[in-house]
Design a protein around this nucleic acid. Structure first.
Lengths: 335, 335
DNA sequence: CTGTTAGCGCCTTCAC
DNA sequence: GTGAAGGCGCTAACAG
């Protein structure tokens, strides 16, 4: 008996091979246990023999549901966003959801493209770390049918569920701690304000300093440190202009790494005060004060928000801010 | 005229609203240009008005093709693997493919689960960074229909396309360079041999040293440094046992970071010789010799291999090894 | 407990 | 250039 060379076996083929009806095969494959044991094992044997692989998309189509969620990450090579993705994937796995993932590389045009392309696959929801505060892509009207959750940054005026870090609280505690430790002359280095979080952290830093009657000295606030090397250069520039701050408030850990490398190379002991963990903190001859957090929790929380929303589409939008943990690495390596 | 509240509009709805046939609407949506201009614009208007969103899965079902690929990453929070994912996603985007992504967290059981779940969505191919050399999951029989590409590590005896780094060549050049720089007393610290790459690098290190009439001194080879902290502890252990190697060969950059932190804290100048980039290399008071590479290329290449395979299913399996770039960061910060 | 019928949303014939 | 019928693989709804 000749087999039609390379056609993928369908449930129909399985049913036929097992001598049962399509629906019975379907029941077995889907683990419905009200099936006669003998039939069931015949079906399972046929599956194995033919190399049957279920087609979940077809099942979703019929059932009107979708077992995928979309995930648009700003930059998957950035450990912060990668960890968000990891958290979201782990949470999705637990719920038996498959993740359609894409990295927008921070380009709004690309984000738009990816959004359209992912929406095409009919995910049951979309999780996005937006590329730009000011650019709301089209396609978000679909939120009537597929709920959106924004992570880290939000889109203004859109009533989506949202989860972010407690940027304000974290930076405030950072500044308070640094001041308690005796630092008075602060520089502030941040990445682009295209990232709303950067703006929030910057605002919080200024506010906290002012509450202590201080502020960043003129010429000591620098914007646009996008990479570790940028930050190192920016700090070099600051030093070459004769500034010698006690402490540098860094908008994220990439900036902190760059600043640290310049500071250490210059033989200074300027303290590094930063958001996020700082690897090697204990090995460096400078104080490091860090507001640490696990960015996976952002991804996990996003999935949870999505599922709540699916359960109750009409609930008011929820906004969650995850707290940070403060750590002071004293220059000796003690903590 | 009352609209049935919240049903998602289908192409049928669009066609009806535009007063054309289903097929005509389909043609317009798919950019077939042999459609009367007036009709086409009526269809487009209807799409916009109803908020129509194409259902790509249904289209794939009918067409018998799939515009997704599956991607199983060993650990998305590890920057190395994250970069592989980034490369794969970028390459997939260019080909208008959507990526079904999942992170196995290095657990074979989980890998198996994810594989089944992704295969369920009928991707046109699977890219995997295997969790374990010795564990080939079931489901790979499906490679008759959906080609597999392994990245970084392969599964033995399976004729899949494969892309990895040139572990052997990279480590060899690392050792040669270190010896040229005058180092003679080497330690070797690696992660688990569950990672085949670790084994390959270790073997290459031994071979290269022996070619120079050297080898790792007894008690100076350590295995199982999984995290930065592990590596720091392992190095601490080595030192506490009285060893003082000239240079430490590190299996990856996490190990190098941990080793560096212990070395620097101990006030030593032991050279760090490692695979992968080493951030902060120039800021540390030790020599760093690194075999650098862009792991994105692994992901990109994997997608290319997959597409070639799709075009020519019967071609012999291809194996690609990407070269590394050697960099010597001298302790002064010069290069 | 099992099988039949209908149809999810779309696209591929193949007529008109 | 356009439209009607049929079916991709699967499962809800309803019989038997």
């Amino acid at each position: 008996m000749s087999v039609p060379a390379a056609r993928r076996p369908t449930l129909k083929d399985v049913a036929h091979a097992a001598g049962v009806s399509l629906k019975t095969a379907s029941r077995v494959v889907n683990g419905v246990d009200s099936v006669d044991a003998a039939m069931a094992s015949r079906v399972r044997a046929a599956c194995a023999r033919l190399g049957y692989q279920r087609n979940g998309s077809a099942a979703d189509l019929r059932g009107g549901v979708s077992s995928t969620i979309g995930l648009i990450i700003r930059d998957i090579t950035n450990p912060f966003y990668a960890a968000i993705a990891a958290g979201a994937m782990a949470a999705a796995d637990e719920r038996h959801l498959v993740v359609l993932a894409a990295s927008s590389e921070g380009r709004v045009g690309h984000e738009q493209l990816l959004l359209d392309r992912l929406l095409d696959r009919r995910p049951s929801g979309m999780i996005v770390t937006p590329a730009d505060v000011d650019h709301v892509p089209t396609g978000t009207e679909q939120s009537r049918f597929v709920p959106f959750v924004t992570v880290d940054t939000d889109w203004p005026d859109l009533p989506f569920d949202h989860v972010s870090l407690d940027n304000d609280g974290g930076m405030t505690r950072l500044v308070d701690t640094a001041i308690s430790a005796g630092f008075r002359d602060f520089a502030l280095i941040v990445d682009s304000f295209q990232l709303r979080t950067m703006w929030l952290r910057r605002e919080a830093a200024h506010a906290a300093l002012r509450r202590h009657g201080l502020d960043v000295a003129p010429g000591q606030e620098m914007i646009g440190a996008h990479t570790i090397d940028d930050a190192a250069a920016v700090m070099g520039d600051l030093l070459s202009r004769g500034h010698r701050p006690d402490a540098v408030l860094c908008g994220n850990n990439r900036i902190a790494l760059g600043v640290a490398s310049t500071v250490v190379a210059a033989g200074l002991t300027t303290a590094i005060v930063c958001f996020d963990e700082f690897p090697l903190a204990d090995a460096l001859p400078v104080d490091v004060i860090a507001a640490e957090f696990d960015p996976r929790d952002l991804g996990r929380t996003a999935v949870e928000l999505l599922l709540s929303r699916l359960e109750d589409p009409d609930a008011p939008p929820r906004r969650v801010a995850l707290p940070t943990t403060l750590n002071h690495h004293t220059s000796g390596g003690r903590r």
